[in-house]
């Protein structure tokens, strides 16, 4: 494997966003790119990352390899990179280590680190193609704000999408709270758009603790996409350049 990222910052942000949810995971490398899929310890949430080969320049992977990496170790090393550094990941065919090289484009500084790899026996889950009842795209910062505000009142949020809009509501010991967003197009600032595509109304309840955790990815993309269908996990997607993505799935809370 040899994969060169124009900005080390991208990988730093991705790992920073998921490191509290998953600790050890395999980075599956093949000629289409670098993928990661892992459940959190409680098996409530699933992280799915895809860094497409096109996100790297150049990208070369001659043989499929799984790099088992402890994310807190990876984060320690990524913190040694300047945000603007060029990052090159390298690994042999049957690697014991993954090699990270950081190059500054402005100075002649070159730093090099090896991280010991782990043997991780990870379950891989098949995620079915789903036609979601509601797909909401909104500013990532807005979603983060709503989750942070509501977790002050309750541990769960009900997300209800109707033709009127999308309503995030919660109730807790001190009282209730709700935030409603309607579809909204801002010609001057398209990054503030809220788009709600609905095939049928849907209402589901989720743990806010996980949603707040997913929102650590807000720095990766201006927009977040929420996809909901009755009684299936919520998909929270942050789209990256070159069709790469960071997706989180969260199992709902069901029944009374």
């Amino acid at each position: 494997l040899e994969a060169r990222l124009e900005q080390a910052n991208l990988l730093k942000k991705v790992v920073d966003a998921i490191k509290d949810l998953v600790q050890d995971c395999n980075f599956d490398c093949n000629d289409s790119g670098i993928a990661l899929q892992a459940m959190d310890n409680s098996h409530v949430a699933l992280v799915s990352m895809m860094l497409k080969a096109e996100s790297f320049s150049p990208f070369r992977c001659d043989r499929n390899i799984a790099l088992g990496i402890n994310l807190s170790s990876l984060m320690k090393v990524l913190r040694c990179a300047q945000n603007e550094d060029i990052l090159t990941l390298k690994a042999d065919d049957a690697p014991d280590v993954v090699n990270l090289v950081f190059e500054s484009s402005e100075s002649d500084r070159l730093s090099e680190y090896d991280i010991k790899l782990m043997d991780i026996d990870q379950e891989h889950l098949g995620i079915p193609e789903t036609e979601y009842s509601a797909t909401i795209s909104m500013p990532a910062a807005e979603f983060q704000r709503i989750c942070r505000d509501l977790i002050a009142l309750s541990e769960s949020v009900a997300i209800e999408a109707t033709k009127e809009g999308v309503k995030f509501s919660c109730s807790g010991d001190i009282g209730n709270g709700a935030v409603t967003l309607r579809s909204h197009t801002n010609v001057e600032k398209p990054e503030l758009n809220v788009d709600i595509a609905l095939s049928e109304p849907v209402a589901l309840t989720f743990s806010l603790k996980y949603l707040v955790n997913f929102c650590k990815a807000s720095g990766l993309s201006g927009t977040v996409k929420l996809c909901l269908s009755s009684e299936v996990p919520l998909l929270v997607e942050y789209t990256l350049a070159s069709n790469s993505y960071l997706r989180f799935y969260l199992a709902p809370k069901i029944g009374d």
Binding site: M39, L46, G126, A251
Partner: peptide, 14 residues
């Protein structure tokens, strides 16, 4: 109260 579901209830092992 509502019960937290597990992700593996929805996505099967491959």
């Amino acid at each position: 109260a509502k019960k937290q579901q597990s992700i593996s209830t929805f996505f099967a092992k491959t």
